[in-house]
């Protein structure tokens, strides 16, 4: 393992850890900032890989992540936080139980995918990284996004869960094979548009609970 490879591993791992940070926050603003940190970490990973592969496409991709995920989405979400912003929080969150359930969830998910897929196929990873196990991090992050959507009932948490999933996909794509930049850019714009659309819902309805009319 050389130093650059270590940096890639570390930043990918930290991106996964940032998922846990987001999961453990009660205050909406901290969650949004956690998403910001995650975007920065992913951009950093992309830049290191761009350096290793000396690829312009990856530099552009990194910049896109920085601008769209890091700046625009964070800004959009922070502006939509109702009231004073800094003191809006979700009620009744058991952090310890959330963390542990999240852990169980991603472990089961990752292990199932690992035993079904990775034990039989060996993927070759970008940036001449040995082995394909680095894909564990984006997978874990993806499952964290799913768990965040499933475990929380406020609009914000669910949007952030969705963005986390998309972040995981970016990470997954750059490790495996960078998708053509035009498609990746369209995907980013789609996600941005979806966040804009969701922010309309935020204005009207802050939490989402089961309803009698929508049962069965």
């Amino acid at each position: 393992m050389n130093a650059l490879e270590n940096i890639v591993f570390l930043s990918a791992a930290l991106a996964t850890v940032s998922g846990f940070y987001i999961q453990a926050q009660e205050y909406i603003r901290s969650m949004v900032r956690g998403q910001f940190v995650q975007a920065i970490l992913i951009a950093a990973t992309i830049f290191v890989l761009a350096f290793v592969e000396s690829s312009i496409d990856l530099v552009v991709l990194g910049l896109l992540v920085l601008v769209l995920r890091g700046y625009l989405i964070t800004e959009l979400l922070e502006r939509r936080i109702p009231g004073k912003g800094s003191d809006v929080k979700e009620k009744d969150i058991g952090i310890a139980s959330h963390l542990l359930l999240d852990l169980v969830f991603i472990m089961i998910g990752t292990f199932i995918i690992y035993s079904l897929v990775f034990s039989r196929i060996t993927f070759s990873i970008a940036g001449s990284i040995a082995g394909d196990t680095i894909l564990v991090f984006p997978l874990a992050l993806f499952f964290q996004g799913l768990f965040l959507i499933a475990s929380r009932n406020s609009t914000f948490s669910q949007i952030i869960g969705y963005i986390e999933e998309e972040n995981a996909l970016v990470l997954f794509a750059i490790f495996l094979i960078p998708v053509p930049i035009i498609i990746e850019a369209s995907v980013f714009l789609d996600v941005l548009a979806l966040v804009v659309i969701s922010s309309f819902v935020v204005l009207e309805k802050f939490t989402h609970n089961p309803m009698d009319e929508l049962r069965g």
Partner: peptide, 12 residues
């Protein structure tokens, strides 16, 4: 309220 909730479920 119901259609808002339905729209949100659809989105997410």
């Amino acid at each position: 309220d119901v259609s808002l909730e339905a729209a949100w479920r659809y989105i997410i």
